[in-house]
Amino acid sequence: MRPEIPTHWLHPRDIAEARGAQSEMAARIVARDALPAPPWRLGGADVSNTRFDPHRRVHAAIVALDAARGVIARSGESRIADFPYVPGYLGFREVPALVAAWARLDPRPDLLMVDGQGLAHPRGLGLACHLGLVLDVPTIGVAKSLLVGQADPGAAAGDAAPILWKGAAIGMALRTRRGARPVFVSVGHRVSLDTAVAIVRDACDGRRLPVPVRAAHDAANALRRSNRLPV
């Protein structure tokens, strides 16, 4: 984690402070390509939890993949979240655990696909933006549903349509497999939307979710099943 990260970016005292932190962070998101030279080692990040768990347990996983899209490293963190489940503020519940998992990951990816929103968020700071800024790592949001906006891609695999909200395009709905619901791609940090969509397209293998997101999803679920945190 970057040493200069303010405490309230990760551990706000309440919703009002969290809202202010999101505004501060959103102003610092880089929505253009600021990437290392390719080829890139891709990674995925996901968190498994139960929305109505009164104990706020979260199980975070990050994976790194090789050029053949095999998992070469994985790291996880199970903990009790210190922020409640509040739609639109999930970063404060999940990013601290993901930061801890990242710290133990070796080797680390050059770019992370995050199972969640990026800029396609009411305040322009979804989980992918939050994590990318805190780590100063290029990130892409790959969400399974829309939080805000509308999009209507064609039915064929590879069809895409912009996610429109308040007259602006905030991401792209991408049909990765015919007959499947689209995924919703948006900028996280240090990646342009065009590059993000191209990378997600290339990382799909005929299934709905791109390989890095699917690998992280499997790792987070495995961590949740194997871990019994005290309550």
Rank of each mutant, 00 (worst) to 15 (best):
P36R: 05
G20D: 11
H55F: 15
A45T: 06
P36C: 04
R19Q: 11
A21M: 11
G43S: 10
S23C: 13
S23K: 12
H55T: 15
P12V: 01
L35I: 11
R32I: 14
T50Q: 05
P38V: 15
E17P: 06
P36N: 13
H55S: 11
D33M: 10
V30S: 09
R28S: 12
G43V: 07
R56A: 11
P39D: 03
L10M: 13
R19D: 03
L35M: 11
E24N: 12
G20Y: 08
Q22M: 10
A31Y: 06
D33P: 13
V47D: 08
A16Y: 09
H55W: 11
R41H: 12
Q22W: 06
E24K: 01
L65V: 12
M25S: 13
R19W: 00
P39E: 09
A60H: 01
R41I: 04
I15R: 13
I29E: 00
L10A: 06
E24V: 02
R56Y: 00
A37C: 05
A45F: 01
R13S: 13
R28M: 14
A26L: 08
P38G: 15
S23V: 14
A27H: 05
H59G: 04
P12I: 01
P38K: 13
E17L: 05
P38L: 09
A18F: 10
A18G: 10
D53H: 07
A37Y: 04
R28N: 11
V58Y: 05
V47P: 03
R32V: 15
D33L: 09
F52C: 03
H55D: 14
P38A: 14
A27Y: 10
L35N: 02
R19C: 00
A31G: 04
G44Y: 09
R13L: 13
V30M: 07
H11L: 14
L65Q: 08
G20R: 15
H55V: 07
A37E: 12
A16K: 14
L65Y: 07
H59D: 03
G44R: 08
P12M: 07
G43T: 04
A27G: 14
A64G: 02
R32F: 02
N49M: 05
G44N: 06
V63M: 08
R57T: 03
H55A: 14
M25C: 02
A26P: 01
M25K: 03
H55G: 01
G20Q: 15
H59L: 00
D33T: 08
L10I: 04
S48E: 06
R13V: 13
M25F: 05
A16I: 05
S23F: 02
A27C: 09
